Computed example of a mutant assay.
Amino acid sequence: MGLFNRRGRGGTDTRTIDPAAYGYVPEARMRADRAGPAPDVDVVDPLVAAGNWPQLAGFLRTVPMVSERRFALLTRLGNAAAKDDAWLRRWLAADPRSVDALCVYAESLVNRAWAIRSSDWAKNVTQEQWAGFFRLLREVPDVCAAAMDTNPADPAPWIALQTGALGLQWSNDEYRMLWRELSARAPHSFTATHRAWNYWRPRWYGSLELMEEFVETAVAAAPPGSLLTMSRIQMLHEEFRPDGDDERAAFNRGERMQRALSAGIADAAAADQSHVKLPFLRHWLAAKLYRAGRYRESMNQFYAIGGFCGAEPWEWFDDPVREFCGIRADATLAWEDAGRR
């Protein structure tokens, strides 16, 4: 079954494509729960569901200490523990100095704190919500410090501290201290860089100038394949796009975005193709290359992504699958219109 070209909404172009004719995964088989293949998730999720913390701890010990795989797993486990931490409490009772367990606990505290605060505007958050929010967040530095004492070389406690520091409103100098310690232990970490650029955004505790300086410095220092170019693409999209439709179209096709996308393509090509964060960069590339008029390159990213759409920017929409498949169809039809160039 074909998909309507999204440009047809409210317009006259209602052509469709047959995904199978182009080698695409059809809409019915798309997964909106993942950004890409996730073999680690297939291991840990059943263990969490079963409360099997000993086997979970054993699996984490097989994952390299300084790796995005580990940082992603600790983040996911923290999200799970925020909803039900019975298994984590048993783990901590049996091994209170486990760095992995302490980091999961810190991540869960941050998640629980934000659930109490809610995502509403600050002016609408009640005093009771603020009190619960800060009560939980104030525990995070001590939990992370305990993990740091256990293994001072481990970067994971410092990464767990990043989001806590954001909520606790750490000053710029305090955050720079955190970043120095973290980057010494995990230089060019995707997870750490992504969390840090969020801190430096104008809506939090930075400015356009401080945010841009941080991102560009991080990208320039990173070796090819680190995937830090995603932070630059996302920064341009979220913080520098003009408001008007015509101005946005010009910006997306402008030199600055074009350079960022070309660097992103090179970054993705140089990465370990099993890198746990590579799909996240590909999703941004697929969307922005289409907007930049680089249709064949956008299609290449859609092919590489396959049947997954559980990532930004698709997650921002009510129907991520339809948004993903719609942009994919747009890129394909635009490529056809351009004579397959």
Rank of each mutant, 00 (worst) to 15 (best):
D85H: 10
L137M: 05
G339C: 10
T332Q: 15
F317H: 14
G326Y: 00
P152R: 02
C144H: 08
W284Q: 13
F302A: 12
A292G: 15
P152S: 00
D243I: 07
D100M: 09
P96Y: 11
E139I: 00
R203I: 00
A94N: 09
R195M: 09
I305N: 13
F133H: 05
A106E: 11
W314A: 09
S189V: 08
A160M: 10
L182K: 05
R201H: 10
K123P: 12
D246R: 14
L281P: 14
L236T: 07
W179S: 07
G306C: 08
S98Q: 00
A222I: 12
P313R: 00
R112D: 06
I327C: 11
Q129L: 04
A145I: 03
D272M: 04
F59V: 13
P242Q: 07
D18G: 09
D100R: 14
P152E: 01
G254F: 01
W91F: 07
S67P: 15
P223T: 01
Q301Y: 04
R322L: 08
A35L: 02
D319R: 15
A81C: 13
P224N: 00
W314T: 11
Q301G: 02
F280R: 13
W314R: 08
S119G: 04
P155W: 08
A101V: 04
I265M: 11
L333R: 02
F324N: 12
A147Q: 09
F133V: 04
A146C: 06
R70M: 12
L109H: 00
W204F: 04
A93M: 01
I233D: 06
S98L: 01
L47F: 06
D18S: 14
P141G: 01
D243G: 14
A192N: 12
R31E: 08
A28G: 14
R90G: 13
V63S: 12
A20H: 12
E107W: 03
P202I: 10
T332K: 15
A147T: 03
E247S: 10
P26W: 01
L3T: 09
P223N: 00
G58I: 04
P96V: 00
N52G: 03
R97K: 02
V43G: 13
V143H: 06
F190P: 06
V321W: 03
D120I: 01
L161D: 09
W179Y: 08
E239G: 03
E139K: 08
S183D: 13
A221L: 10
Y290M: 02
A106M: 08
G206Y: 04
G306S: 02
G36F: 14
A32D: 13
